[in-house]
Nucleic acid binder design. Structure first.
Lengths: 184, 184
DNA sequence: GCCGTATGAATGAAAG
DNA sequence: CTTTCATTCATACGGC
């Protein structure tokens, strides 16, 4: 069904040869839901990869503010993004036991029953299985390849304050995001 | 971003030839996305018609495993299938909601101003026409036109256990799907 | 060959 | 946090 329903903002879904993603939901457009630009996603992913999982209200505010440079965005978008990303990442990683499909029909196995666990076993490539909480110490950024300051979450359990200055790979058109993640 | 890429080509429709999409153009259908066989769709539809709407992880596994007999399939396919089917059923149902828009231009609701500091606070749900939890008694399946043994959720508050043995119309080349839906 | 539709897959938003 | 709902994106397939 191709019904527009009610003339909501659609980001030109007609042409299916290009992801009209960048800069679509910027100004003026009255969209029903936030559609992150590639830059926004990139930044968010970067933060996530750096270890940010559940940003505080304050951090959300900062991130949102920063991302607004790339397009329309609200705090709640950031909030939801992290919530969803975290959940789905875990979901994906939750490849418990079951190695479904093949011709292993009838296995009668009732052992190990992941009860409440939803599933979603998208097979991502055998990539990193590591879940190290990588943070960026307050002053060791600049040309970070973001790999060396990895440390486990429980290793930095102290009154420390980290700052993460996000420098979008090749994009540096505005003041860097300066997030301080304090653990107390 | 799509980090999944779904760059896997495992359709392998050639592995099993005793099935086939009822006259599908049988194009290479290399990789990309799951393309259910008619048998698979039939079975899934049967289950849906029988009342299954949101299978648990365990049920999904069983279904997937069973359907793998008819062709390549993964758990997530089953998961998505039910999600989509349910959503589109509802969506379709919803299209007929407003009889006409000629005389009455009723605005659903407009009394919410998100002035709250909290993020998660959008529009209240449109109408919780929540479906009646329809189940299927232990063995009353087999005849078409399976009307709904609808009963409201709070009417079946007891430790009941239902089992649904799916018997594909004319296909019975392997153990029947034995799903047990327990509600407590 | 394009185009319209059906539907698999993904994800934002929200409820529980 | 977990699970579900809604909307959108992408693609297979059939008609023309």
């Amino acid at each position: 069904m191709e019904e527009s329903m009610s003339g909501f903002c659609m980001k030109s879904s007609g042409s299916s040869n290009f992801h009209g993603k960048s800069g679509s939901s910027s100004t003026g457009t009255k969209c029903g839901r936030w559609n992150p630009t590639t830059e926004q996603v990139k930044l968010l992913t970067e933060l996530f990869r750096a270890g940010l999982r559940t940003p505080s209200t304050d951090q959300i505010q900062k991130i949102s503010n920063q991302l607004s440079f790339y397009g329309k965005i609200e705090s709640k978008n950031v909030f939801y993004w992290f919530q969803n990303h975290k959940a789905r990442e875990r979901q994906k990683r939750r490849k418990v036991s079951f190695d479904d499909d093949k011709d292993v029909i009838v296995h009668r196995d009732n052992s190990m029953n992941a009860s409440t666990q939803r599933f979603a076993e998208m097979y991502s490539e055998p990539d990193r299985v590591i879940e190290t909480l990588e943070l960026f110490p307050l002053n060791s950024f600049g040309e970070s390849e973001s790999e060396k300051w990895s440390m486990h979450a429980n290793e930095c359990r102290e009154n420390t304050m980290f700052a993460y200055t996000c420098t979008m790979g090749e994009q540096m058109e505005h003041p860097p995001l300066d997030l301080r993640l304090s653990f107390v």
